[in-house]
């Protein structure tokens, strides 16, 4: 297992390297540049040139990439070309709020999806099943932004009981309750989405398992239905779900951009958008690298988790390592 993980990490390095090169090339091919965004285009040519030199954009592209890469190996992601803040620090400051929002939504989403999915599979065609399936369809098909705006309208504008945006009240306490009330609306939106997607996966995976022979055997030997479902059936049904959950993380990162913008959530989603719109090259490179690392790590963790829940996979790793 250890060898397998090490091998995966070693493979990840060239992948990351490739991702940064492709990102660099695409970014530079896109029209526009940070100088245009920083200063008025009506500036004299000498002033535009001075800004380029100051930002290090006058060097040939390969040299700029090389400088960036050597800095990264020294743990320095550079400075934002727009705000002059350290990229590493900015990402660090905004990653927390994003992870908080995504983490809660993911956990809540799973905690809703798994029991509902299992129940609706065991009670197929019951009222509960119809309710879960309909809810799941709603969760998937209502666009995030629409649900978000609807919730803001109801809870912030009409009843005025929840804040419509931000993470804390500016000038307020900034304490636990403050963050909690700001979390409610964005978490509802993201949770609805995560739960919606996963109820169907859990349900269909469970339905497939429920018809298996070994469950009939389990029932035949007199096992209680509770154990049949929760021990024998569910554990097997959840194996494919692990993969799906691994894919949730990149999806959530994408979805967070929209939600963070609507709720002015101080996470990396909105920072990514404005970095792209203002052609903040060093910021885009930094964010891209971090996103790539997260996706690769999420995949790796999924694979490891897969091995843990499914002994067959673990054996095949060990078999491969023995060869």
């Amino acid at each position: 297992m250890f060898n397998y993980v090490m091998r995966r990490i070693l493979i990840a390095l060239p992948v990351l390297f490739g991702v940064t090169i492709i990102n660099f090339i695409i970014m530079r091919m896109a029209p526009g540049n940070p100088v245009d965004m920083l200063v008025n285009p009506k500036l004299p040519a000498a002033a535009l040139e001075a800004k380029k030199i100051e930002l290090g954009l006058n060097a040939p592209a390969y040299e700029q990439y090389w400088n960036w890469l050597t800095n990264v190996f020294q743990g320095n992601l550079g400075y934002s070309m727009i705000t002059y803040q350290s990229v590493g620090k900015m990402i660090g400051e905004h990653m927390g709020p994003t992870l908080l929002l995504m983490g809660i939504s993911l956990i809540l989403g799973i905690l809703i999806a798994i029991p509902l999915g299992v129940l609706s599979a065991t009670k197929q065609y019951s009222k509960l099943d119809y309710f879960a399936v309909t809810g799941s369809f709603l969760g998937i098909s209502i666009p995030n932004f629409f649900l978000a705006l609807g919730l803001i309208y109801v809870f912030s504008l009409h009843y005025k009981i929840l804040p419509s945006g931000g993470m804390t009240e500016l000038g307020g306490s900034g304490g636990f309750m403050d963050v909690l009330v700001h979390l409610i609306l964005p978490v509802i939106v993201l949770t609805a989405n995560v739960a919606g997607r996963n109820i169907r996966y859990v349900r269909s995976s469970m339905l497939e398992i429920m018809g298996q022979d070994y469950l009939r055997t389990a029932r035949a030997k007199g096992l209680r239905e509770f154990l049949v479902v929760n021990k024998h059936a569910m554990r097997n049904a959840l194996i494919p779900i692990v993969t799906v959950l691994g894919m949730e993380i990149p999806i959530l990162f994408g979805g967070a951009v929209v939600i963070e913008q609507i709720f002015s959530w101080p996470g990396i989603g909105q920072m990514t958008m404005s970095a792209i719109l203002s052609r903040d090259y060093s910021m885009i490179m930094g964010l891209n690298l971090v996103a790539a690392c997260i996706v690769i790590a999420a995949n790796l963790i999924t694979d490891i988790a897969y091995a843990l829940v499914d002994p067959r996979i673990k054996n095949s790793y060990q078999g491969a390592a023995a060869k």
Partner: peptide, 11 residues
């Protein structure tokens, strides 16, 4: 993690 006030006061 994210705020200066860690006492969690319910103000």
């Amino acid at each position: 993690n994210d705020t200066a006030n860690s006492t969690g006061s319910a103000s």
